[in-house]
Design a binder for these strands. Structure first.
Lengths: 257, 257
DNA sequence: GTTCCATTGGAACGGCGTACCAGAGGGGCC
DNA sequence: GGCCCCTCTGGTACGCCGTTCCAATGGAAC
């Protein structure tokens, strides 16, 4: 592998797997998933396909590397010393992924695809480990570690995916006010559903219009955390504080744009 | 199947959008996501691309239609008269989707992609409605309906996606015993992770080897249900039974292959 | 100075989704 | 019954994609 840390070769700006992945992420961010082509990549890097294929096996590996890089960055932002409760730590990790899918709308679908292609890759254990440590810190019995952490991870991935969906669609409507317009459109669409087939969905259509994504995401996290902490004490009420909505998370005020 | 219609000009077996979608689902099931091409479709239906494009706008719409058809079928299997508790109903709906992603390994990634492309399509409200009715039946205050149902849906989608991942990879190893071998491979891979970076993941590697997918999925559902039912009674213990693991769900024995 | 080889970039290939089109059939009108 | 028109068909062609192959480059080793 090109671990050769040599200096400038032919090009002054050495081509490296790292630079290629970085360019791929930028391309994905600006042009969407279909915007990442080897031709666009060769143009941006001012090179040819052969040079890229020297560092990367194929497009699948390139997508996996881009996904892994973004996830790793999202999980690495943990502030070095923030001795919050395990619940707060879970919220921080989850919010990191949540925000990553907001910044990179292609991430959610890519995560699903990558997990289904190669579940033993690096990205799943990375997330699993970050969440699992906090589950352990919550005092969950060891026999439930796997189940509890999996449930948490599944919720986070599902919710992040949904949010990426909304964010992407809102962006399509235009920046700035796009999000409000998008929620209004969804709300209106739901209100227009068949009353016989979709009574419940119609009933909550109004709640869609003015909910806050982060708050809703964190509320879901707290639902799962409530279920997980209920696993801890076989008897006697839990001494650990029960998760309260937005508890101690003043660090993440909703972006009141 | 492609009835060998000699060189008949006008076909007797009418081509319809329904037949095309059906063929697309079969193609996806047998050959995976990359197996669905218009060329393969024209061959299987013994026709040309133009005929298909007359009924379907493009490949994206075809994929959406296939996804929608499969999800609709999965949600339609509700036994007409099964007056179980709301918890049991939630489990039944969730298991329907879970099993659909097992039978159609391409479904999970496709759901994520479709939701991110067009969140106001038919598939999201369909799932949302099925789950939401049970949330309402649980006695959740109306102000929490949207949050609770969303959390449930996100967990189900995330977990189903993960399971499809595992199922797909297990199938690649071969039918029958493939699943046990796959779990063993993942478990071994996790045990081989860096002890400094992945202490938790290594610690639960053993639990991976012999867990049951459905049981784990239902346990996660129950975690979320516990959190949701905790929303119901501002005071006084819930009169409804608290969700117990596998409570009353003897209908779904683990497939002890 | 010569050799070597890791690296580069361009040309070419097969397959994909899709646009386009010449016609075939059958139902509605006379 | 004859005609026409409009729905529907299946073939051909195009442009872009991922990928392969290969001649050429130029610093490093001797």
């Amino acid at each position: 592998m090109a671990t050769r840390t040599g200096r400038s070769q032919r090009r002054t700006d050495a081509l490296s797997r790292e630079r290629i992945v970085e360019a791929a992420v930028e391309l994905l961010d600006t042009s969407g998933e279909s915007g990442l082509t080897f031709r666009a990549l060769t143009e941006r890097l001012a090179t040819g396909p052969g040079a890229i294929y020297w560092h990367v096996a194929n497009k699948t590996e390139l997508l996996d590397a881009a996904t892994d890089a973004v996830v790793a960055a999202a999980l690495a932002v943990r502030p070095s010393e923030s001795p919050g409760s395990p619940q707060d730590e879970v919220r921080a990790v989850a919010l990191g992924l949540f925000e990553a899918t907001e910044e990179h709308p292609w991430l959610a679908a890519q995560l699903a695809t990558q997990l289904s292609r190669n579940p033993s890759g690096t990205v799943a254990p990375r997330i699993f480990e970050s969440l699992g440590r906090q589950v352990r810190a919550l005092g969950v019995p060891e026999g439930h570690w796997f189940t509890a952490t999996s449930a948490l991870m599944h919720y986070v991935l599902g919710a992040a995916g949904q949010n990426a969906a909304n964010t992407g669609s809102a962006r399509a409507l235009g920046p700035g006010t796009g999000r409000a317009e998008f929620l209004d459109a969804v709300s209106t669409a739901w209100e227009g559903l068949d009353p016989g087939d979709y009574p419940f969905t119609r009933a909550v259509a109004g709640q869609v219009r003015d909910h806050d994504d982060r708050e809703q995401f964190l509320a879901g996290i707290d639902l799962v955390l409530t279920g997980i902490t209920a696993l801890s004490p076989p008897r006697e009420a839990s001494p650990a504080e029960k998760p309260s909505r937005r508890g101690g998370a003043g660090r993440y005020p909703p972006p009141d744009e």
